[in-house]
Design a binder for these strands. Structure first.
Lengths: 169, 169
DNA sequence: TATTGTTATACTCTATAACTATA
DNA sequence: TATAGTTATAGAGTATAACAATA
């Protein structure tokens, strides 16, 4: 059996950058499947977390933060408002602006979202010891910081159906 | 200034799973930008690598490996064949099947692709020391193996325009 | 009858560009 | 005039399902 120059033990799986892309897509997909039980997409979860962090932001700000055009944000926010998870308040000082906030139901949903996130973290990292898990988190955090990535958002939020598990016919 | 229970030094960026999704999307995007100079998409690069690894596979096999429906694979392979990077050979034993292979030009392109991959690896991991870089690769490899990910392919290949940098109007 | 490759079509998602209301 | 939010629309990308050739 021949062996390429890339063939290292135990099995060559590509460099760190490729593994990041592969594992990142995998992790995002699994998370999407998990929160589908809460009837949420990753982008919706991202908005809820964003509103918990900084309440009262305008739709334009939030759309920018999520990387989606304002026109798409409208229907996106509509869905969450109809389900009673977020509230739109008119800004009395500038009546063009909405201030978006979490409702009580939204805060409850966020708590369930955090549980899902913790379970997800364990599922993805189950191959590692607690010490290795911490090492990995530290290394990844340094990479993210150096690459200039904003905490809490990732490009997958741009898509409405970002790795949605299934589709109803 | 208040501090949430998640707020650890130096700045809370989420768990390892979130960082994986974030960095993975980022790495995939940067790689796409880089190989756009070769006029290749990530999925096209994936096919070239797949053919280098195992030549002569049928379109159906390759479509399955890339996670795309056979119907879409046709136009996908057409593009690479027209550019002279791959060749379709009829299988004499079973005339329904094509055997796809790299052309000489395809092999040259693959060499440039490997250079791009190495530069990409350095760009993404520049925050780490050589030793940390190895640690990270090892940890990620263990994660990928435990999660059952096939070496060399990732779900982003499913999309034709997977994180393509720009679009011509 | 089953399978490979292919084409056609209908459908979803999307950005772009108007439009309104406020400033 | 400029900006926040909204709506409409045309275009791109997609899966599904039919199709032809071969087994």
């Amino acid at each position: 059996m021949s062996s390429s120059p890339e063939d290292k033990s135990p099995a060559f799986r590509g460099g760190a950058a490729f593994l990041l892309a592969q594992l990142g897509a995998h992790a995002a997909q699994r998370f999407a499947e998990r929160i589908a039980a809460l009837d949420l997409t990753p982008a919706q979860a991202g908005l809820l977390r964003l509103l918990a962090q900084t309440p009262g932001r305008s739709q334009r700000e939030l759309a920018d933060a999520l990387g989606m055009p304002p026109s798409r944000f409208v229907a996106f926010a509509d869905g969450l408002e109809e389900r009673g998870l977020i509230e739109r308040h008119r800004n009395p000082d500038d009546r063009r602006l909405y201030a978006l906030d979490l409702s009580d139901a939204g805060r409850e949903m966020l708590a369930r979202l955090r549980e899902a996130g913790a379970a997800h973290e364990q599922q993805i990292c189950q191959a590692l010891s607690p010490d290795e898990h911490r090492q990995l988190t530290t290394l990844l955090g340094r990479l993210a910081e150096q690459q200039g990535l904003a905490p809490g958002v990732h490009p997958g939020y741009r898509s409405v159906r970002a790795d949605r598990p299934a589709r109803k016919p």
